[in-house]
Design a binder for these strands. Sequence first.
RNA 1: GCCCGGGUGGCGGAAUGGUAGACGCUGGGGACUUAAAAUCCCCUGACUGUAAAGUCAUGCGGGUUCGAGUCCCGCCCCGGGCACCA
Length: 863
Amino acid sequence: MATKCKDYNFHEIEPFWQSFWEENRSFRAENDSSKPKYYVLDMFPYPSGAGLHVGHPEGYTATDIMARYKRAKGFNVLHPIGWDAFGLPAEQHAVKTGTHPAANTRNNITNFKRQIKAFGFSYDWEREIDTTDPKYFRWTQWIFLQLFKRGLAYVDERPVWWCPELRTVLANEEVVDGKSEVGGYPVERRNLRQWVLRITAYAERLLADLKEVDWPDSTKRMQEAWIGRSEGAEILFQLEHSSAGPLKIFTTRPDTLFGCTYMVLAPEHPLVEPLTTPAQKAAVDDYKKKAAGKSDLERTDLSKDKSGVFSGSYAINPVNGARVPIWIADYVLMGYGTGAIMAVPAHDERDHEFAVRYALPVVQVIASPKEPGQDGATVLPYTGDGQLIQSGTYNDLDWREAKRRITADLASRQLGRATVNYKLRDWLFSRQRYWGEPFPIVWVGEADYQRVAAARPGGLPTDPVTFTSDGVRHFALPVPEGALPLELPPVQSYLPSGSGESPLANETAWLEIWFNHTTGAAVPASQPRPAGEAWVSGRRETNTMPQWAGSCWYYLRYLDPRNDHAIASPEALRYWGTPDLYVGGAEHAVLHLLYARFWHKVLFDLGIVPESEPFRKLFHQGIILGEDGEKMSKSRGNVANPDTIIASHGTDALRLYLMFLGPLEAMKPWNPRGIEGVLRFLQKVWRECLTDEGASNPKISDTAAEPAELTKLLHETIRKVGDDIEALRFNTAISQMMIFANALQKTPQVTRATILAFLQLLAPFAPHIAEELWNRLKGGAASVMLAPWPQFDPARLTVTEVKLVFQVNGKHRGDQIVPLGLPEVEAVKIASLHPKIAPYLQGKILKRVVYVPGKILNLVVGE
RNA sequence: GCCCGGGUGGCGGAAUGGUAGACGCUGGGGACUUAAAAUCCCCUGACUGUAAAGUCAUGCGGGUUCGAGUCCCGCCCCGGGCACCA
């Protein structure tokens, strides 16, 4: 039941045990188990054509150690893997080669799977999932329909990022510095009809519930910043002449209302036109045109000067009746708040910069309690706290109090109210691409929609989702859940149309249909309308979903991956709950992790999942850099390939080294020579267990006279390795095992029990060699994984003697082994007689003694 | 600009406010060997010293403390995130 090799031949051992595990289905998670569950999850990979580099298995090794450790601790462990396989690269490849992206995806998955399997990770391969499998995306579409029915999905024509090169729109989050995150192509603004998910409806809960999760602080802070909650007030300013109605602005500083010296509208604000006076019209039109022509990169580039133009109109300050000029400037964004602000140049840096440029008045209304300039005046702009001045009846109030009072007073006059604003925008959810989940939506006319609505109460959103084009209003009708999945039709070309529609728009027979709204059946519109009430004329949605869709809920599908009736059975959802540990890169801090939380909360509200947060404990593995300390990339030629390393050093050595490099969360450079050290460690363990002939090392026996120090070290090692695994400190766990192996080597006799316990500790890290040695030393017994995790005996860890460090005036001057619990008087006596200490005390007065029993004795002396 | 994280030997890194540098790599010396590889032993932060030992040393400058890599204040550098959100 093991290999026959005499030396440590990982080429033989590793495949042997990998087949053994596969044949014995060793890593199968049981859905009906009486054991406690432990669910440990990796962020599933996008199977790219480039294959794995050593960065990928870093996190996977960490979770694998945890999974194997928890199994040994008696847990029923769910440790799954799958493929996030929709996405742009496969489609780009399809456009280039004309082959179906599914074919390319399949090849990439095969390659990834081969590479991942070579690591011997303890995945339950029977639960493998693939987001592009219709049996999987059926449920992605199903969840979308739940969002749709709840009014959380809608269609809107809005300015979106359009990437001409990729021929698609991108989400805000996919645009970095004016370029596409994928490929780095330039992007521009276009108005297009888009599906949008109402994530803002969950903004408050997404923010508040961050308090409940055990995540890295930096990630929580990033999500907080992304959601960007700010409290303030909406205030109505009457207009001097225009009947265009009051001007509504948002501010977080209602306390500075008396310092408002001008207003600003975003160039896209609907009141810009009515408020522009004839005299200013030419200048305003010119400015609007310029602003619209600017790329967002130019508009958001802080280094540029602020610009704007006067509208010619005035507003009235609701607190003092002051006449305030209304300007138009692109430093105010239409997408946030009301798209209009009151400008308080004395207390806002941006307003101040603008006021200086256009010579607008600056009125200070907050007195700074400190930091006056050289002439005693406050340096403006001043954005700190203080008391109100030049503010009528509000003078001398603390700004916080003034905020409340002014807001309340305006509210009582119907001129304002306290509000909360978020930076978070609704989630742009459609892509003009082929390789994604099709939307299960058919667009129909108003009359047909009304008929269906009457026939299917409850199956549609309260407010119909519509859009209008060429004066015709189109209504979104969902494909019945029973008709899912809606699969991708074969297409002639994978190239997007370039007009803002996906390649699906060219597939007339699929697109223009007679649609049976009760069964979901469809026949091409070119054919006669089938008989029956349920058939309506429709056009399918041509957009597809973004790659994020499939990864928003995959952790739930693993619980019950072959279920044809639900995303997972209620029993599985209840038993497994959510992952106990989720490990993945920090680059997903806002996107995937925010989207998935949103979907999860919707599913929670629907009563489908029992917990309100998907990932209670999250950990980011760091990045492994190339030898040169730079990010690994093909172009730099500094990519370390796992296949090569496994061939030369074996998987166990690679796994061990990946964990030994440094703290899991740290960014660390790959040093190809460092792996020699861990390989030597494994070879040493091998030699301590077996002779050159492959027989049990004669120093091992059941009745060996094992030194007490080694037994003690074993128990220390059991404790440290266990503690370190729990805390994901794998590097120090490995150090401790090395210390043990070094001691073992110096020990002439050792008990079989000690060796076996050590092999168990090693097993989660280097499972193949551990299995091999365990089997040989136990005489062909079952897998090491079936043995319960060793326990340390606290009694073995107690000591009777300790090394006491002597210090004189805080400096280390010597040490001595002393009995535990030595009284202070005795300690001082021993120290003063100590040959290294005595000279320092010569002729000095002992002024103070600091004694930490068992640790340190510090003698403070003076003249 | 704002918000995080980090700066420890030649290198990766270890250190509940209590012996800084565990463990590993690299380098040097030795043992074994006909020889080499492998293995084992010793040394490997800097400076002074024959040695014993001592001084300095955790990015820089201060501080708290009997005692600071660790806590506090002010800087410098590196990495990440956000970036006109009123």
